[in-house]
């Protein structure tokens, strides 16, 4: 069990793909990816987090999303794509679904 984190830039959109288990030990690698995305000279206009293969997310993962939202600012939307039912339950219970876009399968505009 571990977390795999991949970053990809497509035009003005940044994608972070998470797979595996996002627990407190793994959270720093997601946080680093968020940091990296917003440290680019040209700040992305949208951050899409692909979660189809994310089997587990603890509150440490939620704190990374708060961090991402703070980095992104009000004008850069964050999209969660392919969230599993169990992870979605956590997102909904904690009210995070009010602050991010949730889509089944993100279709890029880029």
């Amino acid at each position: 069990m571990a977390l795999t984190v991949n970053i990809e830039n497509k035009g003005k959109e940044a994608f972070i793909t998470l797979a595996g288990q996002l627990d407190s030990a793994a959270a720093p690698s997601f946080r680093d990816a968020v940091d990296q995305v917003f440290a680019q000279p040209e700040k992305p206009e949208k951050l899409i987090i692909i979660m189809n293969d994310l089997e587990y997310m603890a509150s440490a993962g939620l704190r990374c999303l708060v961090f991402a939202k703070q980095k992104a600012g009000a004008t850069v939307p964050i999209v969660l794509s392919g969230v599993t039912e169990e992870v979605y339950e956590t997102i909904e219970m904690t009210g995070f679904h009010h602050s991010v876009e949730i889509v089944e399968n993100y279709a890029s505009n880029a």
Binding site: R63, L65, V66, K69, Q70, G73, A74, T94
Partner: peptide, 15 residues
Amino acid sequence: KPLEQRELGGLGIFL
């Protein structure tokens, strides 16, 4: 609250 105004603690125990 919107995410950017959230306190970071307490969510684990809430869950």
